[in-house]
Structures are given as C-alpha cells and as structure tokens.
Amino acid sequence: MSYEVVYANKYYLKHFVEEISLEDSLEEIAYRANIRLAVASDLPIITPGQEIRVSGIAYGGSQMSYLLNPGVVWECESSNNGTKHLSVTVYDRTIYLAKSEDELLLPTGQTASQRLRQYAQSWDIPIGNVPDTKIVLARSVKRSQSIFSMMMEDLKETADKGGDLYRPRMTPNGLELAKLGNNAKVWELEYVQDTTQKRTLEGAVTQVKVLGSQGGDTSLSPVLAVVKGETDKYGTLQKVLQDCKIETAQQAREAANRTLLGMQETFSVNAPDINTLRAGDRVKLNGMELFVTNVRHQLGEPGQMQLELAKEAKVRRDWCA
C-alpha cells in the first residue's frame, strides 16, 4: 500500500494497516479518517488525544505528501473474531472548533477573515493562508455555540451579501480559508464506473416574499419585496425571508434573487480514486462543472471514491440557507 500512517510522530503503522478511508463534507468542518489495523504484539498502544497523520502519493504525482495532517485520534474500538483488529477514528484538528463552545460580541465592520483570525488567536490555533473575504459583516452577538458555527455564520453572511464561498480547512501550515471551486487542478471525471442523477422539486423555491421588521400583536410585518422565479414552469413554491439586516427594497430583492432556485439536481458518482479531492473542489463531469459536496476515499491500489456533486447555484443556495 502506497500510504503511510504515523502515530505520535514516531510509530510507522504501514504494516498494520488493513483499510483506510477519508471522508469530507461541506456540512462538516473536520476531515475524517477511518483506519482499520491488525493487532500484533509490536503494535503501539493507541489512545484518543494522540497525534496521528496519513500520507500518500498524491494522484498524478510521484512523491509522498500529507493527506490528513495534523490529525488527532478521536476514538478507538477493538474487535476479536479470531483475529484482533483495532478501528481508529481520526479527525483533523478543526474538530476542536466543532466541539468547543463560547460566547462573543463582535462589532460591525469586520470581515469573516478578520473574525477567523480572532477565533484562532483565542484558541491558540496557528494560521495559514487566509484570503481577504472583503465583505463587511454586521454586528453579531454569538450566544453559547460552537466556534465552528460562529465561523459558518460569518461565512454564510459573506456569501449572502454577494461574496465568495469559503470554508475553513486545517493544513500543516495552520487553519486556512479555502475558496470553494478554487482548486488549482480541476479534474475531469473520465473513468466513472457508475453515475446516479437525481432531479427533484423538493427544496425548490420559485417565489420569495421578503418581510421587514415584525409588526405588533395586531399587525403583520411589512412586505419589502415579492420576487417571482420559475413559477410558470414549476408552480409557486414560496419562501418567506425575514432578516433584520435587510432594510431596503433593493436589499430585499437582492436577497430574494439569491434564494430562488428551481429544480434541484445532484449527482452521485463512483470512480477510481483521486485521493486529493476535497469537499468544495470543482470537477468536470460530461462537460458540466460541478462542486464536490461530499467525498469518501477508499484508499488503496487501486483506490475507489464516492462523490456527491451539485452545481454552483445549488451549493450557494444551500450554503446561505
């Protein structure tokens, strides 16, 4: 196997490894590895909280590189059916941002980039490449919630105001912001084993009503805008928006247009593994440019991957929902 697992920065576990899978999703912050080990007398004692990393030869490359690093052992489970095995669940260290809570008051005028640096400084997390997200955010009171949910609120507000889509990623250089679809190499999925295309009106929005500040007990909220989309084609599927940050009719129309989305189309793909693909990366399938929303790599020679794909409009709408 052209993959290496290093535990506690000194134990090389390659000869114990039976299976490795890597999983990534736009709905989660942390990259996850599931590692199955054969237990032998010389296998070191593996316990949660210890450092671990997964490396491999990147698809299309020739040198060993990090696939998940820095990682932390999160869970261990042993089994014995005549042969003893150890299943190890590993997360990159952004898991601590998903599992840790705080309460913060953040002033207006900051960007998501500035706030990410503030979160990282508070939690002694090193910072890597953090591009300027540019969009100025409103004042925000972050009640008791995870640091990850605070970050996602900032990134969703950035996208909702017309900015680019970003997601946090942990790298060997520190916590970074990756722009969705900005991967340097856009892979063409040519050798696909099977593809499932799903089209549905579930989740579609063809009309948006935007309301102003809520009225009293005896009056309804004022209507700032009603924007129609593909009602003639799909019927009326209305969503009501009410956001204290929307104050004018122009802002209401812009927010409504970003919410409109017709038929939902997604793709499920099984293909030979491209082990560096991450959720948020852009790929090409049958001439279409699509975003990876979920990916599971089954590492091996040859490896396999399962992808969930969607067009940018759906990804953006779901991101802001």
Rank of each mutant, 00 (worst) to 15 (best):
S2D: 14
I20H: 10
L22W: 04
E23T: 14
E27G: 15
I29T: 06
Y31W: 07
Y31P: 01
N34V: 12
I45F: 01
S55M: 15
G61Y: 10
Q63P: 00
S65I: 13
Y66W: 13
N69G: 07
P70V: 09
P70F: 09
V73Q: 08
V73C: 00
N80W: 12
T89E: 09
T89A: 12
V90Y: 08
D92H: 04
I95S: 01
A98I: 06
D102Q: 14
T108N: 14
Q110V: 14
T111Y: 11
I127S: 10
G128I: 13
S140N: 10
V141S: 13
Q145Y: 08
S146Q: 08
G162N: 02
L165R: 08
G174T: 07
A178N: 03
K179C: 09
K179V: 02
K179T: 00
L180R: 02
N183Y: 04
K185R: 05
E190H: 08
Y191L: 07
Y191R: 14
Y191W: 10
V192P: 01
Q193S: 11
T195E: 13
K198W: 00
E202P: 02
A204W: 02
A204F: 06
K209E: 14
G212K: 05
S213W: 13
Q214S: 03
V226W: 04
T231P: 06
K233N: 07
G235N: 11
G235C: 11
Q242Y: 01
D243K: 10
E247C: 09
M263Y: 02
Q264A: 04
A271T: 15
D273Q: 14
L277W: 03
A279L: 08
K284R: 15
G287N: 10
L299P: 05
G300Y: 06
Q304K: 05
L307W: 01
L307G: 12
E308I: 01
L309Q: 03
A310G: 07
K311W: 00
R317C: 08
R317S: 09
